[in-house]
Simulated assay, not measured.
Amino acid sequence: MESNKECSIAERWIKDQWAYKWKWEFELDGLFSVRSARKIIESSLLTTGNIVTRWCKNVPIKVNILMWRLMWDRLPTRMNLADKDIDIPSVLCPICNYEFDSSDHVFFKCDTAVQL
Rank of each mutant, 00 (worst) to 15 (best):
W24G: 01
L45I: 12
R54G: 05
S90H: 11
I51F: 09
C93R: 00
S103E: 02
F108H: 13
M79G: 00
T53V: 11
L66W: 14
V106D: 00
L31T: 04
N64R: 06
K21S: 09
F26E: 15
C110D: 03
L75D: 05
S103I: 02
D29G: 06
S33R: 12
S3H: 05
N4L: 03
T48Y: 06
L70Y: 12
T77S: 12
P60Q: 08
A37D: 08
R38E: 08
N64I: 02
Q17R: 12
I65L: 15
M1C: 03
N97A: 11
D111R: 14
M79H: 04
R12H: 05
Q17L: 02
E42P: 00
S90Y: 09
E99W: 05
Q17V: 00
I9W: 13
F107Q: 10
A19W: 04
P76V: 10
T77M: 06
T112W: 08
D73T: 10
A113Y: 03
S43E: 13
T48K: 15
R54K: 13
A19Q: 14
Y20N: 02
L81S: 05
Y20G: 01
L70A: 14
R12E: 02
R74F: 01
I61Y: 11
V34F: 10
D104L: 13
K109W: 09
A113W: 08
R69A: 13
K15G: 01
L75C: 13
E27C: 14
I88Y: 08
S102F: 07
L81H: 07
K109F: 10
D111Q: 15
K23G: 00
I41V: 15
D29Q: 10
N64M: 04
Y98A: 07
M67A: 08
D83Q: 05
L45N: 04
Y20T: 02
A82N: 14
T47Y: 06
L46F: 11
R12G: 00
C96A: 05
I14E: 03
V114A: 11
I61D: 10
M71N: 07
L116E: 01
E25P: 07
V106G: 00
L28T: 14
A82W: 05
L66K: 11
T47V: 12
W68D: 01
W55Y: 12
G49H: 05
K62L: 06
W68L: 08
W55G: 01
E25H: 12
F108G: 08
W72C: 13
F100N: 09
P76C: 14
M1Q: 06
D16W: 01
E11Q: 14
L81I: 10
I95Y: 04
M67P: 00
I61R: 13
C110I: 09
L46H: 14
R54M: 12
C110H: 03
C56G: 06
S8H: 06
C96W: 07
H105G: 03
M79Q: 11
S36A: 10
F32E: 03
I88N: 10
W72E: 15
C56M: 03
K39T: 09
V59H: 05
I95K: 04
L66F: 15
D73M: 13
F107M: 15
V59Q: 06
R69L: 15
Y98F: 07
D87Q: 12
R74C: 08
N50M: 15
A10P: 00
K57N: 10
F107W: 15
S90L: 07
S90C: 07
C96Y: 02
K57H: 09
C93S: 00
I65V: 14
A113V: 11
S102P: 07
